[in-house]
Amino acid sequence: MNPRRKKRLTLVLALVVGLGATVGLMLYALNQNMDLFYTPTELVNGKPDGTKPEVGQRLRIGGMVVAGSVNRDPQSLQVSFDVADIGPSVTVTYDGILPDLFREGQGIVAQGVLVNPTTVEAHEVLAKHDEEYMPPEVAAAMEKTHAPLEYSKEQKQGSTQ
């Protein structure tokens, strides 16, 4: 092999090895930051493909807050509550201020670490709402703004008849 081809071959091999190392490091970094979503039933029984999270794994869990399960510590911001879907419930512990929409019977998504097979220690709790939800301030502003418009439309329709 002549020196020119040998130089090209080493350059191409170096590029392939560098590209492979870069892709491998990116996949490793993404794997460290990936939080899989589980329902309470999937967390306890496993997903349909048989995978179950391990203790210490970061995850997200979503479901409805079980009525009567919210326990607040009067001395701190520590709160624990049960989350369920159609099957078994899972206990979520959280130390912080809960969202305004949080209440029993409300859907939530908690992001945290699995402490034991039925307990998640959350570091973030998000309250879900339906698509018809509107904050009270926005509803009042919409009512104030759109009421005169609807009245004027009714006047126009009444005058044309």
Rank of each mutant, 00 (worst) to 15 (best):
R8N: 12
L11T: 11
L13Q: 11
L13C: 11
A14I: 06
L15Q: 06
V16N: 01
V16A: 07
V17K: 01
G18N: 00
A21Q: 03
L25R: 14
A29Y: 07
A29M: 10
A29P: 05
A29R: 09
L30P: 07
Q32H: 08
Q32V: 08
Q32N: 05
Y38Q: 15
P40N: 03
T41W: 07
E42S: 15
V44K: 08
P48R: 09
G50W: 10
G50H: 09
K52W: 05
E54Q: 15
E54Y: 08
V55A: 13
V55Q: 11
G56A: 06
R58Y: 13
L59E: 11
A67M: 06
D73K: 05
D73W: 06
D73T: 02
Q75S: 13
L77T: 10
V79R: 00
S80C: 00
F81I: 01
D85Q: 06
D85T: 04
S89E: 04
T91D: 03
V92A: 03
T93A: 06
G96Q: 01
I97T: 12
L101E: 14
Q106V: 10
G107Y: 01
G107Q: 05
I108A: 00
Q111C: 00
V113N: 02
V115C: 01
N116A: 12
T118P: 00
V120G: 00
H123E: 11
H123W: 10
D130L: 07
E131I: 14
M134A: 13
P136M: 06
P136R: 13
A139P: 04
A140F: 04
M142L: 11
E154P: 02
Q155W: 08
K156H: 12
Q157E: 15
G158N: 11
G158F: 13
G158H: 10
Q161A: 02
